[in-house]
Design a protein around this nucleic acid. Structure first.
Length: 139
RNA sequence: UAAACAGGUCACCUUAUCGCGCUCGCAUUUUAUGUGGGUGAGGAAAGUCCGGACACCAUAGUGCAGCAUAGCGGGUAACCCCCGUCUAUUCCCCCAUGUGGGGAAGAAGGACAAGUGCAACAGAAAGGAAGUACAGGUAAUGCUGUAGUGAAAUCAGGUAAACUCUAUGCGGUGAAACGCCAUGUAUAUCAGCGUCUGAGAGCGGCACGUUCAAGCUGAAGGGUAGGCGGUUAGAACUUUUGGGUAACCACAGGUCCAGAUAAAUGAUAAGGGGGGUCUCUUUGAGGCUUUACAGAAUCCGGCUUACGACCUGCUUUUAGA
């Protein structure tokens, strides 16, 4: 019983400020050196970061201004991405070693539905887990 | 009845689950987590087109250049904004048909006085070049009159969303301004003394004007990334009364109404509204579909553009019956 309570705390689907990727330097580093996983129309760029001691993952989302000129649409996409990440991050939080910086990009040209976003989010997170564990085993 | 136009109101709502920013309280393993409460986008937050507040650059100087504005009167912190009013002009109506009366719309509405330029068609000619017919006149000649063209024809007139002139106003840079803290590295900054040349640099362009510099002494800094302030109580909103044709103003009462910074204000589900359309059995019920434009970023006042629904229009306009 105690175990279940503890576990659910770990698996909480909160997304507080310190789990957000905010530092400009880090974002630049992720863009330059990060590895990517794609499940169209979503793309994840990630980078192992040693300095992050407090949290395992800092995550940011973007929607390109070039394609979506309306700020309302960009906000909507970013909120959907954030929401699907928030609800699914528990799957990887308890299964990875080290800490990472995440950056999700939306590559499509059309406004997405939440169902699709969540589907692709799950695929990407799964792929990420496999990839990371493979790299660990190689080491 | 429909559409346009003008004015006004609102900007889908409720519940559940899971979340986010700010803030207040409580608890703890004491600066982080948990928990409870409060609060959280717009009429245009948009375009950044005007006008300010505020900050720094010299208390922002002088002349030229440049830019903006343009009836008259008022409002305002200010404006290229708003209100009122007059006129050119356009449209409509009325009859007693007059250069009549009434109504609506209504401007980038100063000046052709000086200089420069421009002018469709017609015309010989619309300003440095000439001339048709008839008549008059002369030594001779477009020298003069009339006809003819045209809105205008030879000491003329039109045109200034043509240069120009007149009057008035305008310094520059914008919150990545600016102030402070602190990390860290090795020559820019600040204060005092000093002083040659005005070469050079800064002060929006040019000229003037003005400041700076080499050196010495002292202090502690600059770039880059980070944090805090600036940063939300205000030319605020609202109600009554009074003034004003109105824009708006004054007094009194009440209210506190986002402060993020890779940028919170959300996601999902169900139900209910509103609009459109179809079906049935008129009242009504059901199905399908749709529910705009759009996201604060220092803050105000305007303008412009985008856009859904509803209401009003007595004496607006168009179309149909």
């Amino acid at each position: 019983m105690v175990f279940i309570v503890y576990f659910s705390r770990i698996m909480s689907s909160k997304f507080p400020k310190k789990e957000k990727l905010k530092s400009e330097i880090l974002i630049r580093r992720v863009f330059e050196d990060g590895k990517s996983i794609t499940s169209y129309p979503l793309k994840l760029i990630y980078l192992p970061i040693d300095e992050l001691s407090e949290v395992k993952i800092q995550c940011g989302v973007t929607a390109p201004k070039r394609i979506f000129k309306s700020a309302v649409k960009r906000n909507r996409i970013k909120r959907l991405l954030r929401e699907s990440y928030r609800l699914n991050k528990e799957k990887i939080f308890n299964n990875i070693e080290g800490s990472f910086a995440f950056l999700f990009l939306y590559l499509g040209n059309e406004m997405p539905e939440y169902e699709d976003v969540e589907k692709h989010m799950k695929v990407i997170l799964k792929k990420f887990l496999i990839k990371v564990s493979n790299e660990d085993s190689i080491k």
